[in-house]
Nucleic acid binder design. Structure first.
Length: 273
DNA sequence: ACACACCCCTGGAAGC
DNA sequence: TGCTTCCAGGGGTGTG
């Protein structure tokens, strides 16, 4: 399930693979993935356009085809790969961007939850699905002071808030559980009960966890691979997510799994309170 | 503001 | 062995 570190890794690999290539045609096998504009317009807008860059906002991958920008969300299982046009199409391939040099950028998505929007470059941040997103956790603008300010007055459980992309963008289920573990905070703690020490620990844990995961090339927990088809390595460093019943690395207590905010939630009942 | 149910979807796991 | 049922997840929407 691609979260910020996985999308960041895909962005970096795609950059080396597709920048400079020109679209000859686009094949759409599952039109409902294309949310804006209508699929046929989407296709026509991209024909003849050259990839000028690849970016990221939260968990969204941005591919610039001046004057447009493709805003792509991989959801759980979306993945991009560059193939030669005569290579057989793998199952669950839903969109193919064919380039003039005979290569193709292919989008595969087993669960078909992914989405694509195509907007004029420069307008994407003011339109769905990016327009409501909260701050980028790794940006310089995201300071402890801003985090503290945004938390004030909130009464929900901390895990629910960290999953809320309008509050902070980029964290998903894995990195929320990991960040809360590292900070020693129970996922069901009400935000209003957090001390300033805990808020500081959480702020630092979120940033260090994400940075460490990016350095490791993301986590391949389910099906994630980067644009080169390579798995990440951070799953080897995961401390709680998916480790129900296994010993806490710190104290040996079995990791607990519950459901918080509708998501499977893993934590150490001794180290997190 | 917050909690929760529901929906989208598929394949793998679990249950029978 | 083979069938059916359950479950995971991000985000949108709707209800209380």
């Amino acid at each position: 399930m691609p979260e910020l570190p996985e999308v960041e890794t895909v962005k970096e690999t795609l950059k080396t693979l597709i920048v400079g290539k020109t679209v000859e045609d686009v094949s759409i096998f599952l039109p409902r993935l294309i949310k804006e504009p209508e699929p046929e317009a989407f296709r026509e807008m991209l024909k003849g356009r050259t990839v000028t860059g690849v970016g990221r906002r939260g968990k969204f991958l941005l591919i610039f085809f001046d004057p447009w920008v493709l805003v792509s969300h991989l959801r759980m299982e979306g993945r991009y790969s560059l193939e030669l046009q005569d290579q057989p199409k793998e199952k669950h391939t839903h969109v193919i961007f064919g380039f003039t040099d005979g290569t193709e950028l292919r989008y595969r998505d087993v669960r078909t939850f992914g989405t694509m929007h195509l907007w004029p470059k420069g307008e994407e941040l003011d339109r769905p699905p990016l327009y409501k997103l909260g701050p980028e956790p790794l940006s310089d603008a995201f300071t402890l002071e801003q985090f503290t300010e945004r938390l004030s007055g909130r009464k929900t459980r901390i895990k629910a808030l960290l999953l809320n992309q309008e509050f902070l963008t980029g964290l998903g289920n894995i990195y929320v559980d990991e960040s809360l573990y590292t900070a020693g905070i129970h996922p069901e703690r009400s935000v209003s009960t957090l001390t300033s020490t805990e808020v500081k620990r959480l702020y630092e844990s979120i940033r260090s966890t994400l940075k460490e995961a990016i350095e490791a090339g993301g986590s391949s927990v389910r099906s994630y691979v980067n644009g080169n088809g390579e798995m990440g390595r951070f799953q080897l460093r995961i401390k709680v997510y998916g480790r129900k019943g296994e010993p806490c690395h710190c104290c040996g207590t079995p990791i607990v799994r519950t459901v918080v905010a509708g998501r499977g939630t893993h934590f150490c009942s001794k180290c997190q309170d």
